[in-house]
Computed example of a mutant assay.
Amino acid sequence: MKDYKYIARRSDGSQSDGWIRASSDKHAKAILEERNLHVVLVVPEKTQRKNGPKIKRESIMTCLRELATLRESGMALDVCVYSLIETTDEKPLKNALVKIHQDISSGLSLSNAIESQPKVFPFYVGSMLKLGESNGDLSASIKSVAERMEKEEAIATEIRSALTYPSFLVIICVLVVLFLFSYVIPNFESMISEANKESALAGLVSTAQFINDNIAVIVGLLIALVVYVKYLSDSGKLHDIGLAVLKKLPYVKELVQAWQVVQFSSSMQKLSESGVDLVEALTITNNNVSDVTLNKKLNLVIGRVKEGQSLGSSLSEYSVFPAIVTRLIASGEQGAALVSCFREITKLYERRLSVGIKRALSVLEPVIIVIMGGIVGSIMIVLISGIISINEIGW
């Protein structure tokens, strides 16, 4: 599946533009035609839609909560969205809501209208709303989306707050090291003689001279690195690379796996509670997965379940999740209690995830202090040792 940028005309002649996920150009055009849109242009999107307008997640969550409340009151969907346009102060969000209102007024569903604005809303919102549209309980689906976003934001806020002090330490340490190499260490050049050319002090002075002589090249390389990282971020490759690296780290990979279990089990719980059959629930859940490797494994699992194999044995066959998860799911299938089974898995791994994040972040701070202190301390030890050795020679 690829992302395509499209420009089309609605039935009333107005322009509609956005993004759509499809397997090919023809598939994308067919989807747009099903939405009663007259295609003008469809081109592959190369940037994975990550560089959109900056909108606070709090604003999006508030918007979704208000939309659910208005919908519950019996107000028509287009009127609900129009009310949000009038009350929203954030310009990028208001512009997105205007486009969504235009799409809904022309006959498009809310899920499809939101899917065409992926720079504003998370990738999983559209597929989660389709469930509410199919079972007639759209407000509940909107609330589920808001709850998921709130969980993600709570975890992100906890991580950001815990990383504030270590980040401050790293910045201060980098500035101190740059100051030492730029202004302090070069002053020790006169202390280097034939007798101590092979000393640590001489190596430190040589390094400082190299940095100062090639500062323009180093700055240029750093700028190029920042540009390249931005390119990876915009193309979606940075997320995949970062996730692949995190999954190989001894302790962090367990946290990543715990988060994947929470996403899977919570989605399956809500879908099963709504009466969605197992294959469709798995398909919708898989559409909400951002990890490419997990996505491929779940596709294989869906194929096995369609063939008549149980979900627990299919997950176990492809080693999708830890053994305890597959055993709990298998026991839930045997006792016809999959909903309660998924609920317990979600609670268990949410607790593990919370405890694991706090433990990892509590260890991170002293580790950074030791590393940064070791770097600065080593430089100072070399400088002090050089001064002492010069004094001993003079004496």
Rank of each mutant, 00 (worst) to 15 (best):
H38E: 15
E58C: 01
K54V: 08
S314V: 00
S59Y: 11
T88Y: 03
K306R: 14
I171L: 14
R35I: 00
T326Y: 05
V219K: 10
N212T: 00
E58D: 14
E45H: 03
P118T: 04
V339H: 08
M128H: 07
I20Q: 09
G220F: 11
E33I: 01
R9I: 02
C63H: 03
F123L: 11
V81Q: 11
H101R: 13
G308P: 05
C80A: 04
I20M: 06
Q15A: 01
S319K: 14
V177D: 08
G275M: 07
G275S: 07
R304W: 06
Y6T: 05
L169W: 07
N112T: 07
I390M: 14
T62Q: 14
P166V: 05
K99F: 07
A360R: 02
D78S: 10
W19T: 08
N196D: 10
K94I: 03
I384Y: 15
G126E: 12
L70D: 01
V262K: 04
K5N: 10
S106H: 00
K253I: 03
Y124Q: 06
S127R: 12
L338H: 06
L300H: 11
I114A: 06
V219Q: 06
L70K: 00
L246A: 14
F342L: 04
P44E: 10
G236Q: 12
S319L: 04
V226F: 12
F168C: 11
R49H: 08
I357C: 09
R351C: 04
I218K: 05
G74K: 03
L84C: 04
D17H: 05
G335E: 02
G373M: 12
V205G: 07
N51G: 15
E189W: 01
N112W: 12
L282V: 03
S59E: 15
V176Q: 00
E317F: 13
L32S: 07
D137V: 09
I172K: 03
F121L: 12
R57G: 15
S161W: 03
Y183R: 12
Q257E: 15
D17V: 00
R359L: 04
R351Q: 14
G236V: 03
L282Q: 07
L255W: 11
L243H: 07
A208K: 04
L108S: 11
R351D: 15
V177L: 13
R65T: 03
V320I: 07
F179Y: 13
M75I: 14
C80S: 08
I241H: 05
L201G: 12
E317P: 00
G377P: 09
L178P: 01
V252Y: 13
S190A: 06
G74R: 04
R304Q: 15
F181Q: 12
Q309N: 09
S310A: 08
K50C: 05
L138P: 02
L222M: 15
Y228E: 13
G386I: 06
K2R: 07
S385G: 02
S354T: 14
S105W: 00
S354A: 14
R160Y: 10
